[in-house]
């Protein structure tokens, strides 16, 4: 009897221990599972405050009239209808499109050329690489002020040099004529973005095995053929990624360079949809209209982003 009691007591103790172990184990697992979220939480909270809340709030405002504060009332999609039907919408969309396409083409082109040059071994390569990456580190506002002075019609160094070399008898209206103002502002944007593209292409070039080039050489390929049949296919993934990133940045953020140099002028020549959104909000006090434009920009940028994420996901699943 006693031994039976003892045995059942031992069994109960073993069972309790197992339950306790299991509880501890599940608790540990739970805690382990929560750790990544705990690390993500501060960033998420910061993003929620400075990014998600303003974004959602702006979308909500886009359905309200342009009155400020409590006077604003719900008007449904009227702001969107007015924006799309306005006479300026096709113009700013066209400008935004040219801006984006121009940025993508020139950033990818220059970045690839510079990356190919910097990939070669030559004395002082580290220093040259650092110099080429410098524009990325220069603050946009400082760069805008410097470029603005360089382009200045009366006192700018570019007009001085053009005159000194004898390239043109008249001064160039870098920022005071259309479309030269568009190209001039675009040059600043490209100058700022090229270092990023160069870094991506340099990284891409280093992933192409040298055996491919050796095999191409054995097959009789010259430098141009090797570039066409080995380098370009090897950089396809980087090019697609870079194209999408530059497109997202150029379209959605086409503001800083433009605002610093021309504020959308002359006569709307450099007015992109983002600049228009700013003007609607802060110059005309049309908060609802500006928010509707912002929502349209968001929607279009999300299209690019979805393509980018799809690509990243596809690349990830192929590994």
């Amino acid at each position: 009897m006693n031994s039976e009691i003892q045995r059942s007591g031992t069994q109960a103790a073993a069972l309790n221990m197992e339950v306790e172990q299991r509880r501890r184990w599940f608790g540990y697992q739970k805690r382990e599972a929560l750790v990544p979220y705990a690390f993500l939480l501060p960033s998420f909270l910061a993003l929620a405050v400075v990014f998600f809340y303003p974004m959602i709030h702006a979308i909500v405002i886009s359905f309200y009239s342009n009155n400020i504060g409590s006077a604003a009332h719900f008007i449904g999609l009227q702001n969107y209808r007015e924006v799309i039907a306005s006479d300026w919408f096709p113009t700013v969309m066209r400008t935004s499109l040219f801006w984006t396409v121009g940025n993508v083409i020139f950033v990818c082109g220059f970045s690839l050329a510079i990356a190919l040059m910097l990939d070669r071994k030559f004395p002082g390569r580290g220093l040259v690489r650092a110099l080429f990456f410098l524009p990325w580190a220069v603050p946009y506002v400082a760069a805008g002020i410097v470029w603005g002075w360089m382009y200045d019609y009366e006192f700018g160094v570019l007009n001085y040099l053009i005159n000194a070399i004898g390239l043109a008898s008249n001064k160039v209206n870098f920022l005071t004529a259309c479309p030269s103002a568009f190209y001039s502002v675009g040059a600043l944007s490209i100058w700022k973005l090229v270092p990023f593209g160069t870094v991506m292409y340099l990284a891409g070039l280093q992933t192409i095995p040298s055996e491919y080039y050796e095999a191409a050489k054995i097959d009789g390929a010259g430098p141009i053929q090797a570039f066409r049949h080995v380098t370009l296919p090897g950089l396809r993934g980087v090019t697609v990624m870079l194209t999408l990133l530059i497109a997202i940045w150029s379209f959605g953020w086409s503001f800083t360079a433009i605002f610093l140099l021309t504020e959308g002028g002359p006569a709307g020549c450099t007015e992109t949809i983002v600049v228009r959104s700013y003007l609607e909000a802060f110059k005309f006090f049309h908060v609802g209209t500006a928010s509707a434009i912002g929502a349209i920009v968001l929607l279009l940028s999300l299209t690019f982003s979805a393509a980018y994420l799809a690509l990243v996901y596809r690349k990830g699943s192929q590994r």
Binding site: T176, C178, G265, P266, A267, L279, F285
Partner: peptide
């Protein structure tokens, strides 16, 4: 005012620069 000023300024810019 701000909207009218924007329209006028664009017109004047067209005269000076275009």
């Amino acid at each position: 005012g701000p909207e009218i000023i924007k329209i006028v300024s664009e017109g004047v810019e067209n005269m000076l620069f275009q």
